[in-house]
């Protein structure tokens, strides 16, 4: 079935929140969502409720930056380096794992729900058995220091639709594609424009790869972040997306951004591969749709918050965006 046309995008609901929401996981075919927030808490909520009042489930010791659903198991990760495993049906904690030596940036689940993946600033991508919580792979393909001898960061991770591939992206624009079964690197891509090192004016950096998404056929890899920044005090670089043939590492398309400034924090492809959507922001946020084959932007929509994450339904008819003090629902089709 063809994906809905981005021209049909329209805002449907908008909720104000007192906290920043960094991550969202949605139970398939329902309106139930799980949220990871800046008050260190993980919430569940019903988007169809007359009044959206997320319920607190449990607490981390720092910002909760990733939530993922593997079947009925919810796994959250945060700046405390811990993964907390939660049985959503029984409503109780399964286990806590001291997963990383530094701050966890993202947690995702494999499409079949058998694996959980966490990435952190210890530059490790860890693959976990979703049922047992045992470590399956500890993937190391990113340098701990930038070329300028400052700590690097590992921001982005994604699975391919068939679950056979993983991709990880770091602060300096280095991407590694992994064979999930073997736990071995298959290829690398480079997107150095995403990283701005200011060696003269301010002597530090900004940017990094913040989002990744494989095309539905697994042949292309979209990489999101921000273009070069003049004044790195602010997120003033253009929202940037590049698409690679990951097997060769060749950049196929670049969307340098012409309307919005800020980071592209999340990317997703339409299920039929006809378009790619990215979201992110700076002081405000955006949703941007691209026709990758035609190398053009299809729709660029302002969102009233810096978007940190979104969930798109399998039929691409609804996008729930979360971010700075808001949650917004857009409909397509």
């Amino acid at each position: 079935m063809p994906a809905p046309n981005p021209d049909t995008l329209k805002p449907a609901k908008d909720f104000s929140r007192s906290v920043i929401t960094f991550g969202i996981a949605r139970k398939a075919n329902t309106d139930n969502v799980f949220l990871g927030c800046s008050d260190f808490k993980v919430y569940s909520g019903d988007l169809s409720a007359a009044k959206f009042e997320p319920k607190e489930l449990y607490t981390h010791e720092s910002y909760v930056t990733g939530v993922a659903l593997a079947g009925t198991t919810l796994v959250s990760g945060g700046y405390d380096g811990k993964l907390i495993w939660w049985d959503t049906e029984a409503g109780k904690q399964i286990r806590t794992t001291d997963a990383h030596a530094k701050w966890i940036r993202k947690v995702i689940a494999s499409p079949d729900g058998r694996l959980i993946v966490s990435i952190a600033d210890d530059m490790a991508c860890k693959v976990w058995d979703a049922k047992t919580g045992k470590l399956v792979h500890d993937l190391r393909g990113h340098k701990e220091k930038t070329p300028n001898d400052f700590p690097s960061m590992l921001y982005a991770v994604t699975f391919s639709a068939d679950g056979n591939l993983l991709a990880t992206g770091d602060k300096v624009g280095h991407v590694v594609v992994w064979d999930v079964k073997e736990g071995k690197p298959l290829a690398t891509c480079e997107a150095p424009v995403m990283y701005t090192w200011d060696k003269q004016q301010r002597l530090h950096s900004i940017g990094g790869i913040r989002s990744l998404a494989f095309s539905p056929d697994g042949k292309q890899l979209a990489v999101g972040g921000m273009g070069k920044v003049g004044n790195i005090d602010h997120l003033e670089g253009k929202a940037r997306v590049e698409v690679f043939d990951w097997k060769t590492g060749k950049q196929l398309v670049e969307f340098p951004g012409d309307k919005f400034a800020g980071l592209v924090n999340k990317l997703a492809w339409a299920p039929d591969g006809s378009w790619l959507v990215g979201a992110g922001g700076a002081g405000e946020g955006f949703l941007v749709f691209f026709d990758v084959a035609a190398k053009k932007a299809l729709r660029q929509e302002k969102v009233m918050m810096h978007v940190h994450d979104f969930e798109m339904t399998a039929d691409a008819k609804e996008i729930v965006s979360v971010g700075h003090n808001r949650i917004t629902i857009h409909k397509l089709g």
């Binding site: 004016q201 301010r202 002597l203 530090h204 900004i206 790195i232 005090d233 602010h234 997120l235 003033e236 700076a282």
Partner: peptide, 9 residues
């Protein structure tokens, strides 16, 4: 040691 003016990030 400049520059710590972190309005963003």
């Amino acid at each position: 040691r400049a520059w710590w003016d972190s309005h963003g990030q």
